[in-house]
Amino acid sequence: MIEKAGLPAAHLTAMTAMAKLAGANRILSSGLIPHPVGDPTRSHDEEVAWRKGQVQKALNAVATPLDEAMIFPDW
């Protein structure tokens, strides 16, 4: 609904197929179901660095012009 209203929205989730079905446009595979932007297996500093990378990918996605819904490749 956010995209429908005209704002680009990057959707970070472990369940990309469900995001597509629900009508999301800028979809990125991230993390696991209980923590889409967390990775408790890493040390705190490594986790923050990883999360920053995921958020950077989401920012790239909202800056990418699209014609239709897309699950972004994991760059």
Partner: peptide, 14 residues
């Protein structure tokens, strides 16, 4: 979000 002047959104879901 639009009323508050946001330009883009990051959504997270489980």
């Amino acid at each position: 979000l639009i009323a508050d002047g946001v330009q883009a959104v990051i959504v997270t879901s489980t």
